[in-house]
Amino acid sequence: MMRDLILRAAPLLALVALIVAISLLAGMADTVTTRRVILCLVNVVCVVGLYIFMGNSGVLNFSSVGFMAIGAYVAALLTMPAGPKGMFLPDLPVWLAATELPALAGPFLGALFCAIVALAVGLPIMRLSGIAAAIATFSLMFICYIVLGNWTSMTGGQISLMGLKSYVGLWTACAFAVGAVAVAFAYQETRWALALRASREDAVAARASGIRVARLRLGAFVLGAAVCGAGGALYGHFQGTLRVESFYLDPTFLLVTMLVVGGMRSLTGAVVGCLAISLLTEVLRLVEVGIPLPGTGAVVMVAPGFGDVVLAALMLLILLFRPNGITGGREILGNLAGSGHRHDQV
């Protein structure tokens, strides 16, 4: 019994070990590298949030960055010290201006708020499939961007919001990344997630078997939005400043690409995709700065901007040679447990 449980949880344990190992390594590195790893772990939270819905339901979702933004602003407004808050946002409602919750409440309240919003907007949208769902969620992200960017009394609008408590260090980020992976794994082992994956493989057959597709999708959408909201809160408190511009097209495409490059049909894919692209970005950044070749006097160096070109080209190559992502939709150690728990691709 115990052995079965461990075998069943093997993918989770492996992923947690991977994340903790990376954090341990980063703890020994210099400050700049550590900051890069923290950002990467925050991204892991968000990509996993995206995976919870997109991976299990197979429906494209471009709204995760919008929920990140909502989570980030909710956390900032509730936990900012009164001083900077009064300076940047003089028109806040009195109760909100006076609120200063402990910093760690931020990600959780941000997540909760995102879940409520996702429940409200998801209720109608989850009936859509395919490209209509893609456009509807894209529109959601756009609406978040426009509203947050112009609601000057609440968010400061186009100016940056500064003076957020910066408490997100390596181990906070690591803990949240582990937490997000655990939530996603626990969810995908439920029967709701299994039914949702059935609808991903064949919507009509699933419906004929009595699966309420829209309702299950809504559950995954709400959970995923909450995780993304927590990720957004971490992002804001890691940067210390908030700009609406950081929650727009570029991160939207980046998160989706990370998931698809890793393999959108498995949790391992979400984590691996995020790590792989973060690592590539970092290596290319180093090459732009210049890497001295040990033993020779030579320095490997490319012109600035070339790294971005190579990154885009590599992502395209990965997709061309592995259309199902790096992991091909399989979980790490996913074949240890009986065949019933494999997330096979059809």
């Binding site: 395919g130 690409t257 997709l319």
Partner: peptide
């Protein structure tokens, strides 16, 4: 189609 769409992004 998802993979194709993401490929067109890249």
């Amino acid at each position: 189609p998802t993979t194709m769409m993401i490929a067109s992004f890249t």
